[in-house]
Simulated assay, not measured.
Amino acid sequence: MPEPVEHEKRALRAEMRERRQMLSDAQRQAAAEGIARQLDALVAEHGATSIACYLSTTIEPSTRPFLNAAVARGLRVLLPVTREDGLLDWAVATPDGEEIEGAYGVPEPIGEVLGPIAVNDVDLLVIPAAAIDEEGWRLGWGRGYYDKTLGSMEHSPPVYAVIYDSELVERVPREVHDQPVTGIVTPTRTRAFPRPRR
């Protein structure tokens, strides 16, 4: 990885992490409710019956109210399970789903594990991000799981990253392996991007 890009990415991730840690409980709760509304509308817009999402950490915009409601109404939801080789396995979310702390302190579901190709069958992919830029390029948390997943999919469904409103930035540093997203979901809006130029 080129040194300047690595430093830029690290600095931006640290800034976003710090901003997230400063949010109050009330701000987090309001954001979770907004995210749930936006994701519900996105699922309806795409007519999705099967999606991939993730269990949010305590500092991420919460996906949990959305996930609980989606599973309760019969949506098939795949949740990621990290592997040592840098790929993601998947497990189907259940109403009473238990979870453990997986690699890097990220919550993961307990249940039957499906292989990496299970995600090829979803209608919509909802992923985490540290920041997204105005062209749809994503800054992740530096582990590469989602870049590998997206880069390996032959026919990717629409991919939306969940971020706070302030995390849509003018530009994120990027490298050849970085993958763009179709759009973003924030507590106040959903936005699709034109297909980015490489």
Score class of each variant (00 low, 15 high):
79 L>A: 05
36 A>Q: 04
31 A>R: 06
27 Q>E: 15
96 D>Y: 12
94 T>R: 13
64 R>Q: 14
70 A>D: 07
36 A>I: 05
37 R>V: 07
62 S>G: 12
90 W>F: 14
87 L>M: 15
103 A>H: 13
61 P>R: 00
102 G>P: 13
56 S>F: 12
49 T>K: 13
50 S>H: 09
38 Q>Y: 03
106 V>R: 01
51 I>K: 00
53 C>V: 00
34 G>K: 10
62 S>D: 14
43 V>C: 04
84 E>I: 05
85 D>N: 15
62 S>C: 07
55 L>Y: 02
66 F>E: 06
102 G>V: 09
101 E>P: 03
33 E>W: 01
73 R>Q: 15
47 G>T: 12
40 D>Q: 11
78 L>V: 03
50 S>W: 04
68 N>A: 12
86 G>V: 11
77 V>P: 06
39 L>H: 00
75 L>I: 10
101 E>L: 10
31 A>D: 13
54 Y>I: 03
81 V>T: 14
35 I>N: 03
29 Q>M: 09
48 A>F: 03
90 W>P: 01
35 I>E: 01
45 E>G: 08
36 A>E: 02
99 E>K: 15
81 V>D: 11
81 V>P: 09
42 L>I: 05
31 A>T: 09
34 G>P: 09
106 V>D: 06
77 V>K: 04
90 W>E: 05
100 I>M: 14
39 L>Y: 01
44 A>P: 01
85 D>Y: 09
61 P>Y: 08
54 Y>G: 00
83 R>L: 12
48 A>H: 07
66 F>A: 09
97 G>W: 08
98 E>M: 13
48 A>P: 06
92 V>H: 01
85 D>M: 10
67 L>M: 10
41 A>S: 11
59 I>L: 11
68 N>L: 13
68 N>I: 12
40 D>W: 00
85 D>F: 10
57 T>W: 12
92 V>P: 02
73 R>D: 11
49 T>P: 00
89 D>A: 14
103 A>M: 15
26 A>G: 05
71 V>K: 04
70 A>L: 05
106 V>Y: 02
41 A>C: 02
99 E>N: 14
85 D>P: 10
87 L>H: 08
38 Q>F: 07
40 D>A: 10
90 W>N: 08
32 A>Y: 12
75 L>Q: 03
84 E>T: 10
28 R>Q: 13
70 A>M: 00
70 A>W: 00
66 F>K: 07
54 Y>K: 03
87 L>C: 07
47 G>Q: 11
86 G>D: 02
104 Y>F: 15
62 S>V: 08
41 A>V: 01
89 D>G: 07
